[in-house]
Design a protein around this nucleic acid. Sequence first.
RNA 1: CGGGGUGUGGCGCAGUUGGUAGCGCGCAGCGUUCGGGACGCUGAGGCCGUGGGUUCAAGUCCCACCACCCCGACCA
Length: 408
Amino acid sequence: MYQSHIFIPTRSTPATDEPSKNGKLLQQAGFVDKLHAGVYSWLPLGLRVLNRVSAIVREELNQHGAVEILMPALQPKSLWDETGRWEKLKEIMYQWEDGSRHHVGLASTHEEVIVDLMRRADLTYRDIPQSMYQFQWKFRNEPRAKSGVLRGREFLMKDQYSFHASAEDLATYYTGMQAVYLNIYKRLGLDAHVVEASGGTFTKRHSHEFQVFNPAGEDRLLRCEKGDYIQNTELGTPTVCPTCGGTMVEEKSIEVGNIFNFGDYYGTTMRCTFTDQLGKRQPLFVASYGIGITRLVGTIAEVLADEKGLVWPSNVAPFYGHALLVGKVDDALRKRAEAFEASMPENILLDDRDVSPGYKLKDADLIGIPFRIIFSARQGEHVEVTERATGTTEVLTVDQARAKLSAL
RNA sequence: CGGGGUGUGGCGCAGUUGGUAGCGCGCAGCGUUCGGGACGCUGAGGCCGUGGGUUCAAGUCCCACCACCCCGACCA
């Protein structure tokens, strides 16, 4: 990809009204554009990252037997009335009456829709368990959107719902999902911890959050100084670790996932049942699993960025290599750089713009592609390859540089 | 939703007792330059957030509204 052909509106200075690191850098580097509070356009680079994060999540879920679907964001009031959530969520749910006098809302979550779907499927014990997920834009009228893309009013979420014949079967799958989630975070370069949490409106104690310690977070966790014990402050504030007696310290963290075990709540409340081996109707056991994809991108930006700009791990980076034509460029040099780009056009961004070297170098730092490859008269037939994260530089042949990127 | 702050070219900002709307960056053209956001010359670009009011005269004073930001509350 040629940089002159892709829309990357970088700025020399960050927005002054954006205090969060992720929001500041994602905007300054041209990954996102803020339209209004908590609502962003995802520009070419940002969308690439978003898609790569989604791909990793998708891959992990598919391996755990989940299947992708897509449900509507626009939903009727009647469904939500069954659980009383239309009223309960009216503060944060966008709700209105349309031109035909129908009451509709934009979904912030999809339990009601999928439970309705499953109950109308007339399931038998042979049909379950089932686990389905979607990637979808959620809407929440946050009273105060903040922290860049970490808390938006419109955000991309992977939400997933599993249906089981028994509490035991659900528990097994639910536990498995915890491992899947931890694996996802690991692949994204994030050090996440499972924490027991209050379940919000519907479940008490049957919810787990996945937390990444970071000063930009809005949650506060208590962490044992000595061991791994972590507890959410929502559940009270012990000063001593219950497992080892060590001192508990409060730290901020970002919630990067939340899973809920609803037991038979939906099965009974919405009469979502299946027929068992004896021909009897039994309530289904339901759990849901959420990961905010846009929040994940923000978290990665927040955690890994340095004072020069963004730093992307190679498995979510928008490109593997950022090739820069630097200095006085003659035809032969340009041809070499273009051939390099042509060999891996999807993974190499070639800065072919007619701007000064310093301008290109600053932009490259800001954008944070894992490897920077400089084509310059100074290196002759060779290229200078610098790793963004470490600053480590080596002079390689073009073939060696290509091999390095191919290995990512 | 309470408290506080800010709205002026694309971005960042200045604008004094009310009296012709400015600066830096960026942008366009030409030339020079070419390894850490280069330089010169020329040039384009502004319902001063919106609506009312006071005044001979409003970016400036008054009222209302809107938007954005911060603190708090809230947070399937």
